[in-house]
Write a protein that binds this DNA or RNA. Sequence first.
DNA 1: CGAATGACCTGTGAGC
DNA 2: TGCTCACAGGTCATTC
Length: 296
Amino acid sequence: MPELPEVETVRRGLAPVLEGATIARVEKRRPDLRFPLPKRFVARLQGHKVTALRRRAKYLLAELDDATVLLMHLGMSGSFRIEGEKKAGSRKMDGGTVYFAQPKNEAHDHVVFHLKGGARIVYNDPRRFGFMLLVPSRDLETHPLLRDLGLEPTGNELSAEALAQKLAGRAAPLKAALSDQKLIAGLGNIYVSEALWRAKLSPRRAAGSLVRAAGEPTERLRRLVEAVRAVIADAVEAGGSSLRDYVQANGELGLFQHRFAVYDREGEPCPRNDGGKIRRIVQSGRSTFYCPLCQR
DNA sequence: CGAATGACCTGTGAGC
DNA sequence: TGCTCACAGGTCATTC
């Protein structure tokens, strides 16, 4: 499921339950995720408090009180759900930011965190492309999985100038470049198509064509940067996109799928009403959706 | 170095 | 109904 907006939605859903909570017990039901769960995974977590839940790109980072970080990635099909949370009296479920997946199959509940106080956080992942690792806090920045990550699209570091540096000289199509986590970190198959549509740029255009010889960003690149920021912001605000087995807990979340301009809309008219018909092509083995008329 | 491909897994929907 | 195939929101290792 998850690209940056979905991971951020998960983070916001888990944070109120997890931050400040102590992990009383951990159930390791299936250790063979994409990478095997680390040695002594259970022992290293039990009894520790989660001090903060952060996100970098598509990674969730649970900081623990022993200067360790629980690094989590949801892969293609990972999700968390919260069970057994006591609702404090009449307190309103503050925004209700709990992002539930509803697994059809508990056989894919691979890890369960039992928190002090009774809440449980259950990790479900049918395809098991997700993983969890434990990393000493001081090694986080240099960890191989995080070290080479590119620009974070939600912060100040994404600018046309910064992206120009990354795209300069690249012959790869924009679709491939924007999907490359070493360049920009957080976009995936959905939001790359959506951002390129918003920027009116063809997914097949060479990435380097948005950079002038002097390394300066072109107007097209400025447009692209604005489109990326906007689509990510809009999707986060909508609680991400819920496809297939994912549903929102309270009807307010995971609504961005209704606002796709092109993703999974092959054959439909371009929302710009320019007479274009949305096309699906395959790039790097993955579907890309775009309007051949307005996206050049 | 950059670019393209296969591999890792399970589930689902389309088409026969 | 049951089978086969294509495809699914990610990314790592391998190859050219």
